[in-house]
Write a protein that binds this DNA or RNA. Structure first.
Length: 436
RNA sequence: GGCGGCGUAGCUCAGCUGGUCAGAGCGGGGAUCUCAUAAGUCCCAGGUCGGAGGUUCGAGUCCUCCCGCCGCCA
C-alpha cells in the first residue's frame, strides 16, 4: 500500500520488534511503580453464542426473564464474567489531561473532537481502564513485566509505538508532535494516551489531528455490503498522484466525505484543465518559439503582473498555513484558485497574438512578461502540490527546468520571482495530466 | 435520556466578534478567443440562508421553542 501510493515512512515499527518490547516493558514498569496501575477485577458480560464480551451498558435484563441478562445488540443471553486484570486509574489523571487539552486551542483538532473529549472528561467518575488480559486467554502480546500470568492489552502496547519511534526508554530524540488519526480511535489517543504519558511523567503530543471516514453513497464501507473501495485498485486505475489528489481535495476534517468515481474524475479533470493545460498552452511552440524561461532582467512587470504576483504570494502563504493546520483540502482549493487566476491572466494577455507581432518590441516584451509570470505561477503551484502530487510536481518542474530547493530555501523559493529565469525549457510537448 | 454539531443556489460547501453576507467551486444553460489536453475566458442561480417567535435602528450571523439529520456520552 505504501509502495503503491508513494508513501515512505521514515520509520516503521512492528510491535514484535525488540526495541518496541523494551519500550513497552519500561513504560509499564514506570507507570506501575508510580502507582497508577494495580491488579484488580475486571467485571463484564460474556455471550457464549456471540463469542463476545460486553460491558455493563451493553447488556439489559431479558424482558422474558428479568433475572437473566442479555446483550442489547444481539439479544443473546450473557453471563457475568470476572477476571483478574491490571487496572489503570483514569480518574487520577483526569485533571492533568484536561489541563493539557486546554493548554492550546488545537491540542485536539478540529474543535468538534476537542469538544467530545472535553465532555467525556466532564463525567464525574471515569471508570478504571483494564490494561491487561490473562496470559491464558491472550498469549501473543507482550507480557506484563512484573507478572508473567498477564499480557499487556494490545492498544496500550500499540500506543507506546510513538515512544519507541523516539528511542524510548533511552534519551528521546524528539518530542511527540502530531498524531494523525481517524475519528474512531479518538478516545484512545486524546484521553487514554495522554493519561498514560502524564502518568509516566512524559509530555503528551503537541497535537492530535482527527479526520473523518470515507463513505460510499452515504453509507459506511463494509465487506458484507460489498461497497468497499480498494485503494490499490484505485491507484492502479488513476495513478497514486491523482488518487492522493482526489482524496486530499475532498476530505474535510470534522466530517466524512463521500467517495464516487464521478467526483474523482471531475476532480482529476479540473486539475488537468487548470494545471496541466496551463503548462501545455504556455510552453507551446507558437507562444514560446525559443523554448526559454525568459530572464527576469529582460522582463518589464506591469501592474497586471504585479497582481498575479500578489495572488501567488498570498496563495503560498495561505497554503502553508492550511497545510500546517491539517486542512489540506482547503489548501488545495487555494491552489486551484491561483491556477484559475493564472489562466485568466494568460487569456487576457493573449501571448499567441503578441507572438505574431515579430517586429513590435513592446509586444514581445509583454509576451515575455506573460511567459515569465505564468511560469513562476506554475513553478510555485508545483512546489505547493509536492506533498499531494509529487510525481506530477516533479514532471512540471522538470519541464520548466527548475530544481526544487531543499531545507530552509524551500520556503523562500515559494515567492514570486525567486527564480530569475534565463534558461532553456526542457524540449518537447508535454501532457502533464491525462484528463478523464 | 444528557451534551456537541449540522440543516445556505441541482451538488459539495465558505460565511470570525450582527449592518457590501446573500457567496465560491463543480454541474447545467448561453456567448467567445483559438495559444493549449475541445482545454481557456466571459455572462446566467433571483436561493423564504430548515420552521416559528424574540432582542436590535438592523440577524444566515445573538436568544427561545419546534422540525429534520448526525456525532459523542449514558
Amino acid at each position: 500500500m505504501n509502495g503503491v501510493c508513494n508513501v515512505q515512512p521514515s520509520r516503521f515499527i512492528r510491535t514484535t520488534s525488540p526495541e518496541h518490547k523494551r519500550a513497552v516493558d519500561q513504560f509499564w514498569r514506570t507507570i506501575e511503580s508510580k502507582g497508577h496501575i494495580r491488579l484488580g477485577k475486571y467485571k463484564g458480560w460474556y455471550s457464549v453464542v456471540d463469542e463476545a464480551f460486553y460491558s455493563a451498558h451493553q447488556v439489559e435484563p431479558d424482558p422474558g426473564n428479568p433475572a437473566n441478562m442479555r446483550a442489547v445488540e444481539t439479544g443473546s443471553a450473557v453471563e457475568e464474567y470476572t477476571e483478574d486484570n491490571y487496572m489503570f486509574n483514569l480518574n487520577a489523571m483526569k485533571g492533568k489531561v484536561r489541563e493539557w487539552l486546554l493548554s492550546s486551542p488545537t491540542t485536539v483538532y478540529p474543535s468538534v473532537y476537542r469538544h467530545q473529549v472535553l465532555s467525556f472528561l466532564d463525567d464525574a467518575d471515569l471508570p478504571d481502564l483494564s490494561v491487561s488480559r490473562l496470559r491464558s486467554s491472550l498469549a501473543w502480546g507482550i507480557p506484563v513485566p512484573t507478572n508473567e500470568n498477564h499480557t499487556i492489552y494490545v492498544w496500550m502496547d500499540a500506543l507506546v509505538n510513538y515512544l519507541t519511534a523516539l528511542g524510548y526508554p533511552d534519551q528521546l530524540t524528539g518530542t511527540l508532535d502530531t498524531h494523525v488519526i481517524g475519528k474512531d480511535i479518538l478516545k484512545f489517543h486524546a484521553v487514554y494516551w495522554p493519561a498514560f504519558l502524564l502518568a509516566a511523567g512524559l509530555n503528551p503530543p503537541r497535537r492530535i489531528l482527527v479526520h473523518g471516514h470515507w463513505t460510499v453513497a452515504g453509507a459506511k464501507m463494509s465487506k458484507s455490503v460489498g461497497n468497499v473501495v480498494d485503494p490499490l485498485v484505485e491507484a492502479d486505475d488513476v495513478g497514486s498522484d491523482l488518487l492522493r489528489f482526489y482524496l486530499l481535495k475532498e476530505a474535510r476534517l470534522g466530517s466524512d466525505a463521500d467517495f464516487s468515481h464521478k467526483r474523482r474524475d471531475a476532480a482529476i479533470s479540473e486539475l488537468a484543465n487548470n494545471f496541466g493545460n496551463l503548462l501545455s498552452r504556455s510552453t507551446g511552440k507558437r507562444v514560446n518559439p525559443t523554448n526559454t524561461y525568459p530572464p527576469l532582467a529582460d522582463v518589464k512587470l506591469t501592474q497586471r503582473e504585479q497582481h498575479v504576483a500578489d495572488v501567488i504570494n498570498n496563495t503560498q502563504r495561505r497554503v502553508q498555513e492550511l497545510y500546517a493546520s491539517g486542512d489540506v483540502g482547503l489548501g488545495i482549493e487555494e491552489i486551484l484558485h491561483c491556477l484559475r487566476e493564472g489562466n485568466k491572466y494568460f487569456q487576457e494577455m493573449e501571448p499567441w497574438k503578441l507572438a505574431k507581432l515579430k517586429d513590435d518590441a513592446a509586444a514581445q516584451h509583454r509576451r515575455l512578461a506573460c511567459l515569465y509570470t505564468t511560469y513562476e505561477l506554475l513553478r510555485v503551484v508545483s512546489l505547493l502540490l509536492c506533498p499531494v502530487t509529487p510525481a506530477i510536481s516533479a514532471a512540471c518542474l522538470d519541464k520548466l527546468a527548475v530544481a526544487p530547493s531543499n531545507g530552509s530555501a524551500f520556503c523562500q523559493s515559494l515567492a514570486f520571482s525567486y527564480n530569475k529565469g534565463g534558461h532553456a525549457l526542457k524540449p518537447g510537448a508535454i501532457t502533464l495530466i491525462q484528463r478523464r
